[in-house]
Design a protein around this nucleic acid. Structure first.
Length: 588
RNA sequence: GGAGUCUUAGCUCAAUUGGUUAGAGCGCCGCCCUGUCACGGCGGAGGUUGCGGGUUCGAGCCCCGUAGACUCCGCCA
């Protein structure tokens, strides 16, 4: 037997036993005479003690041990000398006194220490297999496993089938940029890696599967972020003969099972629901972080007859005047003030009006335009007190809301309003718009995806081509201001799907060449269906309390999509390119 | 494509207003040390201050350019 126990299993009750352990030298404390080795495996630490007076040959060998050498020791479990027990270790009452030491593999000089936090992420990613030995990352991988297992167990209990769908798939024009894979057998043609198994799962519904799920790898060739990688994992779910409420309940039950399994936390279900319009109006975001207040307050009634031109203009042209009260933030620095103004500008505001309340005085360049009645109304609506900072936006509804929403988040960040919070605020955001106009492309795009069903009562708006007013039967699940999943009821009627494609500007020919299989399937008895997809990486990130999904993936890519460990992407042999009939063109 | 922050020893960081030979801790090497648990003590090696240019009597520090990393915007149905 290679080992009889792992490094977190021996206790007082094992004293006297003959055991064999294997693992890494975590740290060695060499006193010249007696030598202590903390032996580590993925479960924990066990102290091994070498005494020269008992076994000089072994002690001499142990003297040469260095951090991260891999060893195997056989010996007796002994009680520690009274007074030297270590309460910080689960195995702190005992130590192993070896009679045999086998050095299985020597470790070179370490590229970086494992016992301190290190900020050089390049280096960590280059030696990823080494960095993963860090207990925190080991724990993250274990939690990720438990989340995936709890997901499978729960969905299995609910009667869902896990079905794999192709990775070599077909490129479609909608959505993110595709990763392409050249086809050797049909030169000049390409597969695309799936952005999501969307069409396949809908076709599985047509196939009569009724309840499908998959822990699916998805691929999107877009720029990276702390919470975005080119390949990532979704918990992908689809079911037939369901309504949104069924999906909400299923998802809530699944998340409850996941949090129970991964963190032993009971989460409160059902989750609250909020329409998209409310979310934007109150928080300036479609994924509001409600762990802190600072809600957007509408001031249309207050400033109905205002003398302040910018507010007046906004209100008389169909826009809004809104404000947030950043409690106790009147003392912000000039730099912070400039930063907030910069955010406002970036998101389309012309400026950022404010009131600082200091020493009982409203310090503000705009306050002189306010009547006493306006001041009074402001004070009561925004609950203005000493030390507050009130920030205004007057613009089109979308712009005013987004500007204040972004500022709200930044203020909360600066004030550290969520630091150390253990709160788990789940929320459904519902009634998303179906379509959004892209000025850049001069066309309407799907907010969710082209297969999303309009709300029943808004289908007539689609026929009337009032695209901006149509609400979708679509929903996102949000946790602490992070979108962890989203889904919708789908279109299952070929004529409605065609109308949708039409609205998106997909020609009849393109509909047939790109989505013909789907439209045909919808003519062969397609059941009403809908589903949801949750970002597994983001979910695990939040459960682990990490700030980047890189810390919950075994082998993530850096900001530029490179794997620094394996040095990919990399050039390939010209023979490979010839077989694919591909030529690369050097950059100008 | 854009903005911000950062880049000094293997790692984490320091270096007053631009001023002597760029320092410390950890790690590494050598010696010492028999109850530590981040063991301890003494000694040593280790630097193109990311790179290129400029200003200056003098640049790690100021200026310009460039590369890289990270965060954000755009993008992500």
């Amino acid at each position: 037997m290679f080992r009889t126990h792992h490094c977190n299993s021996l206790r007082k009750t094992d004293i006297g036993q003959q055991v064999t352990l294997a693992g890494w030298v975590h740290v060695s404390r060499d006193h010249g005479g007696v030598i202590f080795i903390d032996l580590r495996d993925r479960e924990g630490l066990t102290q091994v003690v070498f005494r020269p007076e008992e076994n000089a040959e072994l002690a001499k060998q142990a003297h040469g041990l260095r951090s991260e050498d891999v060893i195997q020791v056989t010996g007796k479990v002994a009680a520690r000398v009274p007074g030297t027990e270590n309460p910080k270790l689960d195995t702190g009452d005992i130590e192993v006194v070896p009679t045999e030491l086998k050095i299985l593999n020597r470790a070179d000089d370490l590229p970086f220490p494992l016992d301190t936090e290190i900020s050089n992420e390049d280096l960590r990613l280059t030696y990823r297999y080494f960095d993963l030995r860090r207990p925190r990352l080991t724990r993250n991988l274990q939690i990720r496993h438990r989340v995936a297992k709890a997901t499978r167990d729960y969905l299995d209990r609910q009667g869902f089938l896990e079905i794999e769908t192709p990775i070599l798939s077909k490129s479609t024009p909608e959505g993110a940029r595709d990763f392409l894979v050249p086809s050797r057998l049909t030169p000049g043609k390409f597969y695309a890696l799936p952005q999501a198994p969307q069409q396949y799962k809908q076709l599985l519904m047509v196939a009569g599967v009724e309840k499908y799920f998959q822990i699916a790898k998805c691929f999107r060739d877009e720029d990276l972020r702390a919470d975005r990688q080119p390949e990532f994992t979704q918990i992908d779910i689809e079911a037939s003969f369901v309504e949104p409420n069924d999906i909400y309940a299923l998802t809530e039950g699944m998340l409850a099972a996941v949090f129970k399994a991964a963190r032993d936390i009971e989460i409160k279900t059902p989750f609250e629901r909020m329409t998209y319009r409310d979310a934007i109006g109150r928080y300036g975001s479609d994924k509001p972080d409600r762990r802190f207040g600072i809600e957007l307050v509408d001031l249309g009634d207050v400033f109905e007859g205002t003398l302040l031109k910018v507010f007046q203009n906004a209100l008389t042209t169909g826009g809004v005047a809104k404000a947030i009260n950043a409690k106790g933030f009147a003392g912000l620095t000039v730099g912070q003030s400039d930063e907030l103004a910069e955010i406002a500008k970036n998101f389309g505001a012309k400026g950022l009006a404010f009131i600082k309340v200091e020493n009982g005085e409203w310090k503000s360049p705009i306050v002189k335009f306010f009547s006493d009645a306006e001041k009074k109304a402001l004070k009561s609506k925004l609950k203005i007190e000493e030390g507050d900072l009130v920030l205004f936006a007057a613009d089109k509804w979308e712009i005013a809301c987004e500007v204040l929403g972004r500022i709200r988040l930044r203020v909360a960040e600066i004030q550290k309003l969520t630091e150390g919070s253990e709160q788990l605020d789940f929320l459904w955001v519902t009634d998303f718009p179906l379509l959004q106009f892209s000025a850049e492309e001069n066309k309407w795009n799907a907010v969710h995806h082209p297969f999303t069903r309009p709300k029943e009562e808004d289908i007539s708006l689609l026929e009337a081509k009032k695209f901006g007013q149509i609400r979708a039967e679509a929903y996102d699940v949000v946790l602490n201001g992070v979108e962890i999943g989203g889904g919708s009821m789908r279109i299952h009627e070929p004529d409605l799907q065609e109308k949708m494609f039409e609205a998106l500007g997909v020609s009849a020919e393109d509909q047939q060449s790109m989505f013909g299989h789907l439209l045909k399937a919808f003519k062969l008895g397609a059941p009403p269906h809908g589903g949801i997809a949750l970002g597994l990486d983001r979910l695990v990130m939040l459960i682990c309390g990490e700030e980047s999904i890189r810390d919950v993936m075994a082998f993530p890519k850096n900001n530029r999509g490179m794997d620094l460990m394996s040095q990919s992407p990399a050039e390939v042999d010209s023979k490979q390119l010839r077989e694919l009939r591909i030529k690369t063109i050097p950059l100008e």
